[in-house]
Design a protein around this nucleic acid. Structure first.
Lengths: 207, 207
DNA sequence: GTCTATAAATGGATAGAC
DNA sequence: GTCTATCCATTTATAGAC
């Protein structure tokens, strides 16, 4: 494997494990048994590494956000879709844990992250409208708008929230809970029949 | 004013403005025109300052969380209650912006913050149960549980979320939007009459 | 209580040899 | 591409005089 690739892989691992602010370029080089100078041959600086990792993340989550707008979704599709979103966040969780800091320092990442967030919201609106059109959901425009924001907030911050509550540092078992939690946002707007279906689905899903 | 007090006030201001990781003890001393040595006479280290600020925050938000469990709430009460919670968060927003980092470093703050979070959830459950008992809300135990978590997530992270979306750094005008957003979580579980009341209330409230 | 001076450590980054 | 050596800036923190 190329050194550049290894730097990205090692950085991602260390960032996720220890938090981005607690991982210096020296740490990364050390962990890989290369020299700091070598690292700086491949990346201009630490933010450059973060930007590269972010672009990997961006590509991955973009693919996940693509699918549901292409066609109408049924309930099972939505689980899968949300699962993919949560998987991406989990994989690059260091970004979300120090979001404010990272976005503050890094203009490029800030602009692009904003775009992803807006896209999340628009995707949520599109899905809801699809459900309303299909007659299995009832909501006014205003309700849909507020709902989409709530979906975006919970999807964005659920893993942070869960991490504070349950002290266990790793384990991604919370993804299922995150998906469930987002679904409970939509649930009360569904027609009764669908609400029950969702209820059964979620109990299967969470074992 | 005592120097110790001034250090806390200045730290809070700088932390909120520039982000806690970007404010060193030297910056704080500098801004106050005192020497770093003087600052360290009053506080053992930076985390000690953060702990003191956190305890101020804890006291303030504890008061806010006290009220609603004492008695049943009507809709107007809930706006006020949520407003107080958001005000506290806004005032100590630096904590929330670098939450993961701060909690990771500081065991005491972590344990106490966790307690506050649990209390937020329990308060939300209590309020919902009150509304159900009063017959103006319909929700199963499971729905209430999920709802309380969603309330906690949105209340905790709304200001962070809003800050990313709208680039303007300061201005607390988003508090009203935060309260509204939390209310939209509860709204679909209310009986129709109350839902309409809430709708009217929120439109008055947000001008 | 407050200041000056300074130690000790760390992190980001570069120059130049190989 | 990679390493060694090193520089510079910053940060935390303390000792000791006033």
């Amino acid at each position: 494997m190329k050194t550049r690739e290894r730097i990205l892989l090692t950085s991602l691992k260390l960032f996720n494990e220890n938090g981005e602010p607690n991982v210096s370029t020296n740490h990364i080089a050390d962990e890989m048994d290369i020299s700091p100078g070598n690292l700086y041959y491949h990346f201009r600086n630490k933010d450059d590494i973060i930007l590269s990792l972010f672009m990997q993340f961006e590509k991955q989550i973009s693919d996940a956000l693509e699918a549901p707008t292409a066609r109408a979704l049924n309930m099972e599709d939505m689980w899968l879709y949300l699962h993919l979103v949560f998987e991406s966040i989990w994989q690059y969780r260091f970004l979300y844990r120090d979001l404010d800091n990272i976005l503050m320092r890094n203009r490029k990442v800030r602009l692009r992250f904003k775009r992803i967030l807006e896209r999340k919201i628009r995707t949520a609106v599109a899905i809801c409208n699809g459900l309303v059109d299909a007659g299995i959901m009832h909501a006014t425009t205003e309700e849909t708008e507020a709902l989409a924001n709530n979906i975006a907030v919970v999807a964005t911050y659920w893993l942070n929230y869960q991490r504070i509550r349950t002290d266990k540092q790793e384990e991604n078992g919370d993804i299922g809970r995150g998906v469930y939690q987002v679904m409970t946002l939509v649930s009360p707007f569904l027609v009764e029949e669908m609400r029950h279906l969702l209820y059964r689905l979620s109990h299967d899903y969470l074992e």
